[in-house]
């Protein structure tokens, strides 16, 4: 049984910490540990090398809890790295590679979801919320300009002073009348 055990995800992937992954791993195996460095992926130009790095950093390792292809040691991540490498070496563009992966694994592989109707909510949603908040703030500021002045009231002043002055268990407890 040694070869079986060696590949057993329960034993080798304990790095995929004791999260619900444990539950999931009982169901799903994905092979063992693989390379940690990207040394084996060599390109002709440093630009391509950088492009490769940036690309795999933006892709999600599906079996990991939340790691990119660049950072994951799972074997499936290595397979996908190999595939991306092969496609890049074959001269395919980033978009072609992304399309290839999305067709097979879905939008879930992309850490950087593209702008399209289904992601409008993601890209614009927060700004709509922030816009509403900004509108409220501006209105508040404008309203404040016209508001009647209401400085800190006399009794509040007194209590603040009491805090500054020496008065342990201050008399303010008795002068709490506003």
């Amino acid at each position: 049984m040694p070869p079986l055990l060696k590949k057993d995800p329960l034993i080798n992937m304990s790095r995929v910490i004791k999260s619900l992954a444990l539950g999931a791993l009982l169901l799903i195996g994905s092979g063992s540990v693989s390379a940690y460095t990207l040394e084996e992926f060599q390109f002709d130009s440093p630009e391509q090398q950088t492009e490769f790095r940036e690309l795999i950093a933006k892709l999600r390792c599906l079996v990991c809890q939340n790691e990119s292809l660049a950072g994951s040691q799972a074997e499936l991540a290595q397979d996908l790295r190999n595939e991306v490498y092969r496609m890049m070496r074959a001269g395919q563009s980033q978009d072609e590679i992304l399309d290839f992966l999305v067709e097979r694994y879905g939008d879930f592989v992309l850490y950087d979801p593209p702008l399209k109707p289904s992601t409008y909510l993601l890209w614009f949603g927060p700004f709509v919320l922030i816009g509403i908040a900004g509108f409220v703030v501006v209105r508040t500021i404008l309203a404040k300009k016209r508001a009647a002045d209401e400085p800190i009231s006399a009794s509040e002043q007194e209590r603040l002073k009491a805090l500054l002055d020496n008065s342990p268990d201050s008399p303010s407890s008795s002068s709490r009348s506003t």
Binding site: S68, G106, V109, D112, P113, L122
Partner: peptide, 14 residues
């Protein structure tokens, strides 16, 4: 609406 990932590129841009 589908299964998506939101990662560092999104947060960084935002």
């Amino acid at each position: 609406l589908g299964k998506i990932s939101v990662g560092f590129p999104w947060f960084n841009k935002m």
